[in-house]
Design a protein around this nucleic acid. Sequence first.
RNA 1: GGAGAGGUGGCCGAGUGGUCGAAGGCAGCCGCCUGCUAAGCGGUUGUGGGGGUCAAACUUCACCCAGGGUUCGAAUCCCUGCCUCUCCGCCA
Length: 428
Amino acid sequence: MLDIRLVRENTEKVIDALKKRSEDTSVLDKLLSIEGRRRDLLKAVEDDRQQRNSLSQEIGKLKKEGGDASALLEEAKKVSEDSVSKEAELRDLEILAKNELLLIPNIPHESVPVGRDENDNVEVRRWGNIPEFSFEPKNHWDIGESLDILDFDRASKIAGARFVIYKGGGASLERALINFMLDLHTKEHGYTEVITPLLVNREAMTGTGQLPKFESDLFKLEEGDAKGFLLIPTAEVPVTNIHREEILSGDELPIYYTAYTPCFRREAGSYGKDTRGLIRQHQFNKIELVKFVKPEGSYDELETLTNNAEEVLKRIGLPFRVISLCTGDMGFSAAKTYDIEVWFPAQKKYREISSCSNFESFQARRADIRFKTEGRKGTEFVHTLNGSGLAVGRTFAAILENFQQEDGSVIIPEVLRPYMGIEKISKK
RNA sequence: GGAGAGGUGGCCGAGUGGUCGAAGGCAGCCGCCUGCUAAGCGGUUGUGGGGGUCAAACUUCACCCAGGGUUCGAAUCCCUGCCUCUCCGCCA
């Protein structure tokens, strides 16, 4: 959510931002007209209230002294009654203004490349050598099925399309990845591990920006007692909301959290895409990194957060590149986003494995997360950042493809061996 | 699932219709005093919005879990919801 004052006083900047995102600017006209009326009415209502308050005070005083207050009572009643409709209208306008404001995306940072879609994203750096194979590299789902460590068919019997069963060495590898990533982030990168609810309420989803605009991406529970719960599409939601409606003290910051959670996504509208394999599942595991920081250093924090995510790939030994998303391709709440893309040999291209963003105060304003600096009056909104560190399923897939051998086996990357106790997954 | 209790400022806690943004205590801050420590004394300390100002001062409105209602006036009365706690039952 943007600051309504910014929208009011710096409208051009907001229009510019919307245009860069290829978004319709008409929402803004609507918002501003509502906001204008809201402010006029606020003044009127407050004047009424002031008058009423002072009359009431006199009535109180008079009654205490045993005087006759009936004339004042009459007057006060009139003021009150006259104000009723204004108060109601004001309430409506406040809700309307808030609703409109919630639909406006964040303003991109000045360093973000301007562009229409993913073709205008800018590659920032690459790491690692793309592996060469003396044979035609296979897709990870073929590898996984032939090693009997992934089972898509039976999963679809249990749940449906876009679900998977990890089995044997597959389950072990998935678990190893989770533990390796968590250990790296907690022991070396300074994050505190949290385990959070996977079902959350609407307020939490609104706080991070999934609602109200992206309801169709989410799984919801709608029956009986469960009514109102939504399944998290990312740990960003519960973790960022840990400090919702809190005023942190300045010296608590920065706060770094990491969390392992399953994530649930409807993937409505992506029917043709990635129908096979682990890339696009309704349920997948992810390690998330979340930061709460002071505004001054938040872009440095984005760099280190991104580096922290890259480090996972470096240690495993998977080639990747980092791209800076352009204005048209960035998510709704983000001010700047780096995507990390890992190499998939069978598809011969880089695919997203992490997305690291600075939301500046956009989420903090929605979720009301502030901090107070000792000796300074008032409070400020924190800046929130998050990124995947990493998507576990996609990392799993990348390992199968990049470390596959001609005989169909898969070499386990060295850093994962202590977690698994084996060096290789082979056919039985 | 059954029975009860309760949600007030950073914390504890008083307040049941009227100068209450809220007593008192603790903690914090400023000052005084005390040759250290501790104690003592005086003052001060919430958040958000509007107006105002270069900025401040100042001013006004709202906020005692949330949302409605009654009333000239609500922390205080009524309704609904949410949450917490205790006991019993059930349960990984």
